[in-house]
Nucleic acid binder design. Structure first.
Length: 349
DNA sequence: AAGGCGGGGCC
DNA sequence: GGCCCAGCCTT
């Protein structure tokens, strides 16, 4: 039915001369490569390569091997992860590293079913590690590959789950024939550079000769998502300063949004706008600015309030029990979210 | 099957 | 503004 070689030869030929020069690709035969692939895959979940490049080198420099990472703490990992988002990925990467060190003799497993048992490693990542780190056949299908293959064979994509299974079958067939590592990464590079969601550059595509969509001049495949209303929420964040110039921070809850990251104390974030000026207690407080931030499922506006810890105003605020005090120049050593980094900008005011 | 879970870059 | 990105997990 499918003729894999129509894809394999032109794709790999194109890949060899057009592949992106990425730090986790420098030498796949290097002994430490599987660890570096593991780190890169965790970082790359729902995150662009350009963004990951700002974090990957610092991570590897801090923990060059899986053994090094397995000895790290969650706070240390969050410090490096700060700003990257989806912080549970960092927590899960650390957990996975410890499991590999203790239960798998510090070797990244090759078996896909074993890989999938690790926290934060799912259907895609387990296959991607097998193919990219160990050059094994797999059905590694990310959104890039799903789009490329769907367009190439002009597959039905009304049902995205079913479409994904079809693409997985094809990718398994492709990688079983030849060069799993180059094939997977070639398809991804093609999807990110030429076979893009909007305005694909078909004229430069090495696969245009066999591409059904190109032949039929149809490129409409995009992951259609039902657009839903994103609620707006409001709250206040308190920059509480002690007389020695340090500020109060606390750790967020173990689960949920921004879990385990550090923050300046805040109110709850509600869809009801806080009565901006009416309460007397609030009126006395020192409003130094506003922070706007967009999460995937709501937007947030925080009013930034500066408070002297020794003043009477502190009585109007719920002060966290196990907070920590940090000087402004120590904030970089803390796992702050981008939201809280925005709030911290008002410290200098 | 659907929604929570970050953040930045693009148009 | 909306869309997208080397997804995973819980319910």
């Amino acid at each position: 039915m499918y003729k894999p070689n129509d894809i394999t030869y032109p794709l790999i030929s194109w890949y060899k001369s057009n592949k992106r020069d990425l730090p986790w690709r420098y030498a796949f035969n290097h002994k430490n490569a599987p660890y570096e692939i593991l780190v890169s895959e965790f970082m790359l979940q729902q995150t662009t390569v350009a963004t990951v490049l700002n974090y990957y080198d610092r991570f590897i420099e801090r923990w060059p091997t899986n053994k090094d990472l397995s000895n790290a703490t969650e706070d240390e990992v969050l410090e490096i992860w700060s700003g990257l988002g989806y912080y549970s990925r960092g927590i899960n990467l650390l957990k996975t590293s410890k499991i590999i060190f203790h239960d798998y003799a510090n070797k990244i497993p090759k078996n896909i079913d074993v890989l999938k048992t690790f926290p934060g490693v799912g259907e895609y990542m387990s296959s991607a590690i097998a193919s990219i780190a160990y050059n094994l056949p797999s059905k590694a299908v990310d959104t890039n590959i799903q789009r490329v293959i769907t367009r190439y064979y002009q597959l039905d994509f009304k049902n995205l789950a079913r479409n994904r299974k079809m693409v997985q079958d094809i990718v398994l067939l492709l990688t079983s024939n030849d060069s799993p590592r180059d094939l997977i990464q070639g398809l991804m590079d093609l999807g990110s550079s030429l076979c893009t969601p909007k305005l694909p550059n078909c004229e430069k595509c090495p696969l245009k000769r066999g591409c059904h969509s190109y032949r039929n001049s149809k490129f409409e495949f995009t992951l259609k998502k039902i657009k839903k209303m994103i609620p707006q929420r409001y709250g206040r964040v308190y920059l509480i300063e002690r007389s020695d110039g340090s500020y109060l921070l606390e750790r967020r809850a173990e689960k949920g949004l921004l879990a385990k990251t550090y923050q300046f104390p805040t109110t709850d974030w509600c869809e009801v706008k806080p009565p901006s000026d009416s309460p007397k207690s609030y009126q006395k407080m020192n409003i130094v600015g506003k922070v706007n931030h967009r999460f995937s499922h709501f937007t947030l506006e925080l009013t930034v309030i500066k408070v002297d810890y020794e003043s009477r105003d502190i009585k109007n605020i719920t002060v966290p029990q196990n907070g920590i005090w940090k000087k402004p120049n120590q904030l970089d050593q803390l796992g702050l979210s981008s939201l809280m980094r925005k709030a911290s900008k008002y410290i200098k005011v």
